[in-house]
């Protein structure tokens, strides 16, 4: 062991006070840097917002529809960057980031169950079944926000008629693609996959129920449910299944995914209804994207023509 006589220690080797202070400074600096990093996260995200441009093929020769609303259409950018599509992500801006490479061709749709014509159809042959219409619908999410979207498609009934369901068929079940490789959200079991939705036969045959393959005059963007989705404007958004691969006709009521996930919160019918609250939040009002204050929610989302489908039913029980 080397022992230095105290006289040997140069005064410069004694931890000087300013160095000791430096340590404190360093630590204070670290704290500040930490806080700044956190704050920077917020700022950094703010200054690099993602942008989305129109990129899809135009759909020509669209027919106008008497079902269209004249309300102000929600900007394309909002409808393509604010999506509930848990197959990709539970973040609203996730699907627009993650669905870019989703393959929508070739795409087959299986039609089976209680029908005369069980078949597997290519999506392009489905699209050609009937003339494409533009339908400007209100779209109300169960979370309390709404948008107005110019969808492109035709009545679901066109496809159902061609499939010729048997007299036993009382319900239609829609299944979304199951493909963990392409849909990273399916690697986590936030919901039971694949996503399943259903309609009663008379609901599915109602002319408002839309089989949809486009919006804003173009093919559907991937994050909005390409290549083929449902749009049921008088029901909460989650009823409108996306990326459909199977349409099955059944005699018993299908269990839909959100109902399986939380049976007391999401029913089979899920009609837009300002008088029946979600157990955890009110459904009386909604925030139309782009508006500052909330607006009142309308019964059946304003589509009163469907009221007769539910006459005599207790809509509080059948929520």
């Amino acid at each position: 062991m080397l022992l230095k006589k105290s006289a040997d220690i140069k005064s410069s080797e004694i931890t000087p006070k300013n160095l000791y202070l430096n340590r404190r400074r360093f630590l204070a600096g670290t704290a500040i840097a930490g806080a700044a990093a956190l704050a920077g996260l917020e700022l950094g995200e703010a200054v690099s917002p993602s942008t989305v441009a129109h990129a899809n093929t135009k759909i020509e020769g669209l027919q106008k529809s008497p079902f269209s609303t004249t309300e102000k259409i929600t900007p394309y950018k909002d409808v393509t960057t604010y999506n509930n599509y848990y197959e990709f992500s539970t973040d609203k801006d996730g699907p627009s980031r993650l669905a870019g490479n989703f393959k929508t061709r070739p795409w087959n749709v299986t039609i089976d169950g209680l029908v005369q014509k069980k078949q597997v159809l290519d999506v392009d042959s489905i699209i050609k079944m009937a003339p494409a219409e533009e339908r400007i619908y209100r779209h109300r999410c169960v979370e309390g926000w709404s948008i107005v979207v110019p969808w492109v498609g035709f009545s679901l009934s066109e496809l159902i008629k061609r499939a010729q369901p048997t007299s036993k068929a009382k319900f239609v079940e829609f299944t979304t693609l199951l493909d963990m490789k392409q849909m990273p959200g399916q690697r986590r079991d936030v919901l039971q996959w694949p996503y399943v939705e259903g309609l009663r036969m008379d609901e599915a045959m109602h002319p408002l129920a839309l089989l949809c393959f486009g919006m804003y005059g173009e093919a559907l963007p991937n994050q909005d449910g390409a290549p083929l989705r449902l749009v049921v404007p008088w029901k909460y958004g989650f009823k409108s299944a996306k990326a459909i691969v199977r349409i099955r006709f059944t005699d018993s009521q299908p269990r839909n995914t959100w109902n399986i996930s939380a049976p007391t919160e999401y029913g089979f019918y899920s009609n837009v209804n300002p008088n029946v609250d979600h157990p955890r939040w009110s459904q009386a009002k909604e925030r139309r994207l782009g508006e500052f204050f909330k607006r009142p929610t309308l019964m059946f989302n304003g589509y009163d023509q469907v009221a007769s489908l539910y006459s005599g039913m207790d809509l509080k029980k059948n929520f």
Binding site: I32, A35, A36, L38, A39, G40, E42, L43, E45, A46, V47
Partner: peptide, 11 residues
């Protein structure tokens, strides 16, 4: 730094 999140929102 603590005002950062607010500044982010402001921006």
């Amino acid at each position: 730094a603590c005002l950062g999140p607010l500044a982010g929102l402001g921006w």
